[in-house]
Amino acid sequence: MKLLYFAWLKQKIGTGEEDFPLPADVATVGALVDWLKTRGPGYGEALGDLSVVRFAVNQDFAGLDHPLADGDEVAFFPPVTGG
């Protein structure tokens, strides 16, 4: 699966994009967040307060309970501020 991080999440995690197979016991966006937080302090800092993080699966907004399949594109970013 492809993971994308934008704005300050990219800065805290230290990369904007990574690819790896969907971990075996990860079935939802929420489970992926919990799994990512174990990967290092940058992830913990970026994903510590989920009230300021939004999620997209395959380029549509998604909630923490959204199911995941290998090959999905999952993005993490702050509330949008364009316009």
Partner: peptide, 27 residues
């Protein structure tokens, strides 16, 4: 269009605020 774009199009603004450095704009 402009009201919906502001809350659903994935853009983020990083401001340069002189001595205060860079700051991500909050929604």
């Amino acid at each position: 269009l402009i009201d919906w774009l502001k809350t659903s199009a994935p853009f983020w603004k990083l401001e340069e605020r002189g001595a205060d450095g860079e700051e991500w704009v909050e929604a």
